[in-house]
Design a protein around this nucleic acid. Structure first.
Lengths: 148, 148
DNA sequence: CCTGGTTTGGTTGTGCACAACTTAATTGCA
DNA sequence: TGCAATTAAGTTGTGCACAACCAAACCAGG
């Protein structure tokens, strides 16, 4: 099968399979995977701008704005224009958003266990994928620049 | 950064970065990445049922039905109920769909070159990801069975 | 037969992704 | 200083993914 030979399809399929395993765990917390990622960033350090979140998660405002609006409606975060620069919106955890961290603590270990891969393979995989993603991002940026 | 330590995020980011690199190439062919995957399967062997396509691509009818409808509207494939079993829909390439294969021939090599990874690393990556995806799929299926 | 369960594909509704565009605030330089 | 260019976030529109549900066709035990 030609499909089975392609790295890109393996990447696409593995990414969806992983998200599918997150789903039942995150459902109990009332979260989607991208929303969980936003919380991971905020739990690390609260009070990020939309731009900062976008840089961390590699998502643009077209994705983040409605996502953050839903998270705000769910009572997990609050959004405020900053005093210094009225263009910038700062996203902060609410008490509920902070408390969710404790309930989510077991999620990463559960996922790692489900991979069935040993730690060394996982670390290698992560590093290869991170390198790959940044190479691709640079290539895409160059392509966009050339187009202009 | 906690995010940088997670394999799952690396997978999610790399998958999107890859699709983003496909986009300009596939745009010229008037295709999206999932549509290109459908064509890869049909170019390999024409005349697949929706169920078979779903098994290959790991997509359900909720995704495939509208996707195939768009491809049919674009004149790339035709759909027909089979004579033997009226439930089954067979998807066949049109002349235009067949001809697209020639124009798409350079796509995989372009992508592989853009990864910046040597062949050995890519093969390892593909195998690790394929194993990972099937482990995850089995885990998800068991979880669904347990729920029932 | 024939009726209850299964299979196949489709529909509906929600939530990403992302391109293209808009608006408002800020910046920089002539 | 004034105004064009830039920046930050949001909106709109399209196309996946996927859950939940549905209708029609088929199948199998009785």
């Amino acid at each position: 099968m030609a499909l089975r030979r392609q790295v890109c399809f393996a990447l696409y399929a593995a990414s969806r399979a992983t998200t599918a395993l997150y789903r039942p765990l995150l459902d109990e917390l009332g979260l989607t995977y991208p929303q969980y990622l936003v919380l991971l960033v905020l739990w690390e350090r609260d009070g990020r701008t939309v731009k900062e979140l976008g840089e961390e998660l590699r998502l643009d405002s077209g994705t983040l704005s409605p996502l953050l609006k839903r998270m705000e409606a769910a009572g997990l975060v609050a959004r405020h224009r900053t005093a210094g620069d009225e263009r910038v919106v700062e996203v902060r955890l609410t008490a509920a958003g902070t408390e969710l961290q404790a309930r989510a603590r077991s999620v990463p270990a559960t996922l790692v266990a489900a991979t069935g891969l040993d730690r060394k393979t996982l670390v290698e995989l992560r590093d290869t994928l991170t390198t790959l993603a940044s190479t691709m991002d640079i290539a895409a940026a160059e392509l966009a620049a050339k187009k202009k």
